[in-house]
C-alpha cells in the first residue's frame, strides 16, 4: 500500500508501539524540519536567478527584523517597514497592475529557493498577454497578509503571494499561493483563495498556475476573491470547447 502515499503507513509495531527504526527516522525528520524553519532566504541569489529569467524585481522587508521576532510577532510580519513602503510608492506604475506577484519567505525559505522561479515561469507562460503584471516583489520575513500592503502600495487589482508554508516532516519545501482581490491592509483571510502544497511530490507548477489564473480571471470578473469564489477550474477543464476558449 505504501506506493500510494508518502504518509507513514504500514510502519509495523512491537506490542502496540513503534519499532526503534521508525522512532529514529521520525526524530531525524523532525530535526531537519526544525532546522529548515531557521534557514534564512538567500535574497541575492533568488533575485539573480529571477533577473536571469527576465523578471524585474523589487525587494522589501516586513517589520519583523529577525527570525525570532518573526516567529513571536506575526503582526510585524504582515506589515512593511517604512522604507519599503516608500520604495514601492515610488515605483507605482501609472496604469494599475492586473496581477502583482509577490514572493515571501514565510516559514520555509527552502520552498522559495526551490519553487519560486519555476512557479513564476509557469504563471507567466499562461497569463493573458494584455495583463499588466509588473515587477516581482521579493519580501523577507513575510506573512501572507504582507502581500496586501505591497499590492496596495503598487496599485494592483489582484495580488498573489507565493510563500513558504510551514514545513512538515515529509515536506520541508512546500509552497503556497494566496490570491486577493483589491489588496489593502486589513483584508481577512476569508477574502483570499489559497492554492497549497506546490512541490515536487505535490501539486505541479502547471496545475497550480492553471488554478491561479482561473481564479484570477474569475476574481476580476466577479470583483472578489475568497469564500464566495469557488474553485471550479476542474470543471472548466472538462467543459465543452466553447467554454475553454475563454481561458488563456
Amino acid at each position: 500500500m505504501r506506493q500510494f502515499t508518502q504518509a507513514r503507513i504500514a510502519l509495523g509495531r512491537t506490542g502496540s508501539s513503534l519499532p526503534t527504526e521508525e522512532v529514529l527516522q521520525f526524530g531525524y525528520a523532525h530535526a531537519m524540519a526544525q532546522d529548515a524553519v531557521h534557514l534564512p532566504l538567500d535574497v541575492d541569489a533568488l533575485c539573480a536567478s529571477l533577473h536571469a529569467a527576465d523578471f524585474p524585481t523589487l525587494r522589501v522587508n516586513s517589520r519583523a527584523g529577525d527570525r525570532g521576532t518573526y516567529l513571536l510577532r506575526p503582526d510585524l510580519g504582515r506589515r512593511l517597514e517604512a522604507e519599503s513602503v516608500a520604495a514601492l510608492q515610488a515605483a507605482k506604475p501609472e496604469k494599475p497592475l492586473d496581477l502583482l506577484l509577490v514572493v515571501g519567505d514565510g516559514l520555509s525559505s527552502l520552498a522559495i529557493q526551490k519553487h519560486a522561479l519555476p512557479m513564476l515561469e509557469a504563471i507567466r507562460r499562461i497569463a493573458p498577454q494584455d495583463w499588466q503584471i509588473g515587477p516581482v516583489v521579493v519580501a523577507s520575513q513575510a506573512r501572507v497578509a504582507l502581500g496586501d500592503e505591497v499590492g496596495e502600495a503598487l496599485g494592483a487589482r489582484l495580488v498573489a503571494i507565493l510563500i513558504g508554508e510551514r514545513p512538515g516532516l515529509s515536506s520541508p519545501d512546500s509552497l503556497g499561493m494566496y490570491l486577493t482581490y483589491e489588496p489593502r491592509v486589513g483584508r481577512h483571510n476569508a477574502e483570499r483563495n489559497c492554492i497549497s502544497n506546490v512541490r515536487t511530490e505535490g501539486l505541479s507548477y502547471a496545475t497550480a498556475a492553471h488554478k491561479l489564473l482561473w481564479l484570477a480571471q474569475e476574481g476580476l470578473r466577479l470583483k472578489l476573491t475568497g469564500v464566495d469564489l469557488k474553485d471550479e477550474s476542474d470543471m472548466i477543464l472538462i467543459a465543452p470547447p466553447a467554454e475553454i476558449k475563454q481561458l488563456p
Binding site: T5, Q6, A7, R8, I9, L11, R13, S16, S17, L18, E22, F26, A29, H30, E165, R166, P167, G168, L169, S170, S171, S174, N197
Partner: peptide
C-alpha cells in the same frame, strides 16, 4: 494519523500507535 505525521497540513499529531 499515520505515524503522527500529517503530510497534508504539515504538523505532528497523534498516531494510530
Amino acid at each position: 494519523i499515520p505515524g503522527a505525521d500529517d503530510i497534508m497540513l504539515n504538523y505532528q499529531s497523534t498516531s494510530f500507535h
